[in-house]
Structures are given as structure tokens and as C-alpha cells.
Computed example of a mutant assay.
Amino acid sequence: MAGTGVRVDHTTTSGTFSLDGQTFDVDNNVWVVGDDEECVVIDAPHDVAPILDLVGGRRVRAILCTHAHDDHVRVAPRLREQTGAPILLHPDDKPVWELTHPAELWDADLADGQEVEVAGTRLTVLHTPGHAPGAVCFHAPDLGCVFTGDTLFQGGPGATGRSFSDYDKIVASIRARLFALPADTVVHTGHGDDTTVGAEREALGA
């Protein structure tokens, strides 16, 4: 079971998302999982300051990237500089990462089935390609939740109309990996409100 005091903290940051020559204003969710001593950060969108505020004085064990679109990794290298934490990304997202950070790399690869430990609990990596080739979700069974980035939102799958994305793949990923989780699993998304696996399973007719 999860260690004593393990919790999920949340903030929202605002900025832009750019791809294929288009730029959009977006609000991004930032999730921090840990206890009073240590934590991991899930995605580093637009601004380091609110992320550090959410972290407080805790040790950041890792910066976990759900995928490499610029509105999810823009300040990851700066957050690494300020915390000393490694950046973890699925290697299939290398071409996407290079659009934002052509001169810098992440520190370690994420792999399907990998477990990231923090504060006595574990996040299991689920490779869910579709929105991006290296998109992943982080399942925290002890906490009854999954962090889906832009793979699954309240109301359905993430967008697939741009480079490196594929609608059939994202739907297959959601059906095989996310809908296999318990129905009451809370879905913490990359943008917008929470939902549950059961609600989205019903909405997608699965």
C-alpha cells in the first residue's frame, strides 16, 4: 500500500501549444505525487515557478513526461536545473521532443510496465501511443487514479489531427490499456477536469 501521507497535488498553468505551424492558448494541469519529503512531477508545461510552489521544499525524484508536446515539456530542462531531478520520457517521442529541445536530451527512457517508486507508492508506466508515438499514462493503483496526459480526457480521446498522431492507435490504446483498469479509477488529465475510467468507457461504448 501507499506510504503514510502520500497525496496528489495539482495546479494549472497557462501558455501556448504549437505544432504544424499553428499556435493555441492552453491551460495545462500539473500533477505532483508524493508525501512531505519527496515527490515526482508529472509534466512541466509553461512556467517553473508554480511547479516549485506546488513542490514546496520536497525532494523531486523525477520529472515524468506523459509526452513531448511543447506544452508538456517546455520548462522540463529548467525544472531539472533547479531541482536536480532527471527527466523521464518514452523514447518513441524523440522526434517530438526535438521540436522543442533540439539541443538537450532527457535523462532516462520510460518503458511500458516500468514502475516509478515515490514515497512508498508506485506509478506504473502504460505506453499509450496515438496522441503522440511515445505517449504514456501513469497508473497509481494504491491511490486509485491514473494520469493520462493528453491520451484520455473527460469526454473522450485526445486530439489526433496533427503530426505524429493517429486516431486508430489512440482508441486502441485507450481500450486495451486504460479501459482495463477498474471502473472507479479517477482519471487525472493533462487539460481540463477529472473523470473516471467507467464514465469514459461508457461514453466510448466500450
Rank of each mutant, 00 (worst) to 15 (best):
R177V: 10
D36Q: 09
E81A: 11
A108M: 13
G192N: 11
I63K: 00
S18N: 09
G120I: 02
T13N: 02
A172F: 00
R80F: 06
A180G: 04
W31V: 10
T121K: 05
V40F: 01
H90P: 03
V32Y: 02
G205M: 03
P91F: 09
F17I: 04
D71K: 05
V125L: 05
R162L: 15
V75H: 05
F153H: 15
A2Y: 00
H69W: 10
S163K: 14
G34M: 08
E104R: 06
T12N: 12
K94D: 15
T66Q: 12
V55H: 05
N28P: 00
L89F: 11
H131A: 07
I42M: 08
E81F: 08
C137T: 14
D36W: 02
G134V: 05
L99E: 10
E104C: 03
G56H: 04
P182E: 11
T121C: 13
T100P: 03
V32P: 07
A111D: 12
E202S: 08
G120F: 08
A108F: 09
Q114M: 07
V6E: 12
H191K: 15
H10E: 13
V136Y: 00
T11D: 13
N28K: 14
V32T: 06
H69V: 14
R7I: 09
A132N: 10
R175A: 11
G156F: 08
N28V: 10
G190W: 05
S14T: 15
H191S: 15
E117P: 05
P182V: 06
A111I: 00
D43I: 02
G144C: 09
P50A: 07
C65H: 01
A159F: 12
V8Q: 14
T4A: 15
R58H: 02
L178N: 07
K169T: 08
A199K: 11
E115L: 14
V118F: 04
V40L: 04
